[in-house]
Design a protein around this nucleic acid. Sequence first.
DNA 1: GCGAGCGCGTTATACGTAAAACTATGACCG
DNA 2: CGGTCATAGTTTTACGTATAACGCGCTCGC
Lengths: 352, 352
Amino acid sequence: MPAQHTEDGGTPRRHQAARSARPTGHDVADAAGVSQATVSLVLGGKWEGRVSPRTAEAVRAAARTLGYRPNLAARTLRLGRTRTALLVVPALTGEFFAAVHQGAVEVATSHDFGIVLYPSPEGIEKAPDPFASARTALDGVIASSMAPEALATLRGEGLPLVMLDSDEGDCDATVNVDIANGMRQVTAHLLALGHRNVAHLAADVDSWTFTARADALAGALRTGGGAVVRTERAPLSVAGGLDAATRVLAQSDADTPTALVCDDDLLAAGALKAARRLGVRVPEEMSVTGFDDLTLATAVEPELTTVALPAQQVGAAGMEALLAVVEGRAPRPVRLPVRLLERGSTGPRPTL
Amino acid sequence: MPAQHTEDGGTPRRHQAARSARPTGHDVADAAGVSQATVSLVLGGKWEGRVSPRTAEAVRAAARTLGYRPNLAARTLRLGRTRTALLVVPALTGEFFAAVHQGAVEVATSHDFGIVLYPSPEGIEKAPDPFASARTALDGVIASSMAPEALATLRGEGLPLVMLDSDEGDCDATVNVDIANGMRQVTAHLLALGHRNVAHLAADVDSWTFTARADALAGALRTGGGAVVRTERAPLSVAGGLDAATRVLAQSDADTPTALVCDDDLLAAGALKAARRLGVRVPEEMSVTGFDDLTLATAVEPELTTVALPAQQVGAAGMEALLAVVEGRAPRPVRLPVRLLERGSTGPRPTL
DNA sequence: GCGAGCGCGTTATACGTAAAACTATGACCG
DNA sequence: CGGTCATAGTTTTACGTATAACGCGCTCGC
């Protein structure tokens, strides 16, 4: 005596145990009285001509009331793509990359992309696997600086790769800041103030941006009739700048420099400390310039003449380039302008 | 006339088109001459008593030569868990949270956990969905500060939640820094130097840590025979500190403060600038204290007396607490000690 | 000598989604 | 009236993994 009861609607319920589990596409389908495939079509946005508007609306309503959000893992498994990019930053500290990140995120979200961060550890050697650390499959990588082996891993994966501030040729797109022009502006500023003999406080970091700074400084100075009379390498920190600048300022001979060009504001801040300790007045007796325009630049006395970098645009351009690559368009190399900020740490060359 | 050819081994090859696609468990299985299930058992580490050692070794060898790495999406879909935690940080800038992150990562990786970052945007209101931004399912959240609504979203998801530096009660575990003790140390230091009338430069940020700083300062000062004679709120920046400190220093009456306690080193750096502009010598005429021991603290002149926070331990303890919750153990609240760094910005109370 | 148990695997299945392939109902047209 | 076509869906399949359920050939105890 089969009851033939169909009051339930006859739709097969597969979920019934967990009451508060996240709703799936099947749940939405049941609620809207359609199949899961229809739900996928409607919410995927490609239903025009395949589903009637009233049904589509019913599906959307059901999804809304159930609070449906698609399962990312399932979608990824199905599609093999994630619309997610990995942003490799040298470390989590640093105002520059905070802005880069923000710029990248803004562009990404407006294109339905996501960004996950990979702060490459201090000792780049023992870096954990970027892919494992991302915790999801990736559609591309935007990298600022990276250990060669990690970069090789990336290429091996065959992922689109955008390099920021690097001369790495083996990638799909590059975004650079016009470091050379920045240094030319610094040089022009110092030359205009009468300086000829310049010392260079170089960051002891092996990355393109610092090599570019050194080269640009030397080149611009030479063509302007000046010269780098001394180069001192220093760890990229205030203490490093202090030590290195102390070494420079302690010595004085015929070619004593009257200006100290630092690769970074941290070094410049250290140089300011060194000058104060040695009784050298800035900028009256010695001009000091920084680079990057960190918060620190206006916290110290005198405020640092420095070069501001368009960090946010770097991130935005990087993400745009990645989108181009992903979508098969040809990205063209980007070179962004910088701006010299003339502040209190530079002044006229002292009369001898 | 069935040929009965089995020279291929008879194992059905499902992948043959894409030559360079990432190998799957099936590929490893084929290479090792076993089934995918066996591969999963062996690589999952739970094969003892179910697979012979030689077979297990064969599987591992095959996985190694193929460069097999399991598909995270598939695993997540199957298991419903990810061994991934979301770390919510107030912004990407900030040395404190860089260290917090590092501490958390170290603990996490040693427990086969992953961490993904969610830098909550400046305007916390328009924050994008943390879950969508994570790009993967989560097993828990470690949050420092968060907009109430975002926190509600989190709770709604039913995820384990660890709060850092917060008085939020509705969570599974808390990790705090002993802010009160830090302010007590600052106060004791100033009282020992003879100061009684203190001005407070308060960060204009609505978060527990700053409320705690204000309360602790007022309390400790009172019990020690001193008093907060003036409180000035300021945006959390050097410029904010400069403005607020200028307001404080400009006025002078009977109860003129001889020490300026700042909620943060940024404010203290601003205060130093204000003092210099107004011709107030630090620390001879006015003592200034900071908080957090940022890089900036030793870049300014004089170097800031400040309170160093155990950032890395905060992250480590947070992750440990989350692990405890996830594994069903009961985490107990953590309160970490701080350390006063006496430097040049504080000195004896000026004789009137 | 025969069922029980064990060692060593295999087969089958489910997770939630996207999309290809298919079905059913009418409308239109020659 | 038979065929073509559009509409509005449904059914089915695959993605790669983890694991429950199921052999299958031996050995062992009684």
